[in-house]
Design a binder for these strands. Sequence first.
DNA 1: CGGGACTCCTGCCAGC
DNA 2: TGCTGGCAGGAGTCCC
Length: 293
Amino acid sequence: MPELPEVETVRRGLAPALEGRRIARVLQRRPDLRYPLPERFAERLAGRRVERLDRRAKYILARLEGDEVLLVHLGMSGRFTIHAPDAAAPGAPGRFHHEVAAGAGGAPHDHVVFDMEDGTRIVYSDHRRFGFMDLIAGAALDANRHLKDLGPEPLGNEFSAAVLGDRLKGRRAPIKAALLDQRTVAGLGNIYVCEALHRAGVSPNRAASGVAGPLRAERLARAIRDVLTDAIAAGGSTLRDYAHTDGELGYFQHAFAVYDREGEPCSKPGCGGTVRRMVQSGRSTFYCPQCQR
DNA sequence: CGGGACTCCTGCCAGC
DNA sequence: TGCTGGCAGGAGTCCC
């Protein structure tokens, strides 16, 4: 379910296990995810210290010692699990067997395994393999093809009603499509676009340019910020330390107002409408035709 | 150029 | 029960 709030939750969950710690060894169990992994990927990561974990849009950026950055995108089904040394290898404290067998990191879709120097094992699995990883020089980060065209961080200072309005101006595509476009605002996906439009009372069918005026742009910008902030808060409060006991990160069910609620009554007080589902550019849109105009 | 259709991959679920 | 088609939270590429 990785949109911005889920990626942020994963980042926070991974941070204690990675920041300031050294990668002992990386096991790469296939040559590619969505794209080929970089040349000598595992070798280049072995022995490196992770200085900091950042997030940009839906990307996790692990800043490595030596000014390189490990870029991770979870795609649709990417997930990390953290395994403490004792839990994963009982009787062999702090160490794993050299071969990844049936235990942690050995499941069919466990594609990349990071063994930290302290014995913690971090496993990336991704059954649909829409996720990807790259290793980039820090200096080249802004020019990276995945990052260079991203719009503003919706929770950052650079995002405002004026900025949003400016980016919607003159665009004839439906607002739903414009918000899914990562160049407009970075980090929204299908769920939070639906939720934000519902909060803002804006029809997903409306042309983007029709939301560019100051009043609607303000309402929409606020809705975007609020819905993301609430979702991050829900992630943090639902998962102690952002991790389930089995170490899986970022997977929790939010209470959505419209997403996947076709046929249910609109939750807005006094609205009385019914949530509908339609398809826009091949993807489901959930909305209330009554209060979203 | 903006915008829409199509594409990658696997799993799951409703319906027959 | 078993098969089939549709659908899934992303985003790059191609074409008009």
